[in-house]
Amino acid sequence: MLPLSHILIFTTLLFLIGLYGVLTRRNVVGILISIEIMLNAANINFVAFSASLDVSPQIGQVFVIFIIVLAAATASVALAIVLSIYRNQKTIYTDEIDLLKW
């Protein structure tokens, strides 16, 4: 059995890589891709905790199912917004979408 802390370090690094992508990408779709990586890191944490700590193993996995469903809903709505922005502004780069800035 792998030590729990090694899995936690792995998911921490995965989460930080996703956060780096969110903070540095200019493309909105690239930011969404990075967010999916962050959600996956959290999911692995849920599964690892529920498998190796003294809790009922169903709880963590049910939470992961809910997160996957919410990620699917987020992705569909966010990509619809991206398409709408592209149709109106002809760009999907975050620093060029400045209609509400002054």
């Binding site: 540095t24 200019r26 493309n27 779709v29 969404l32 992705a75 990509l79 398409l83 592209y86 780069y93």
Partner: peptide, 21 residues
């Protein structure tokens, strides 16, 4: 979904556009 969105929006193949801020 993601690949659909990329194909519908991104102008690919233009390396002069910077992809990170």
């Amino acid at each position: 979904l993601v690949i659909f969105a990329i194909m519908l929006t991104a102008k690919m193949g233009d390396p002069s556009i910077p992809q990170s801020n």
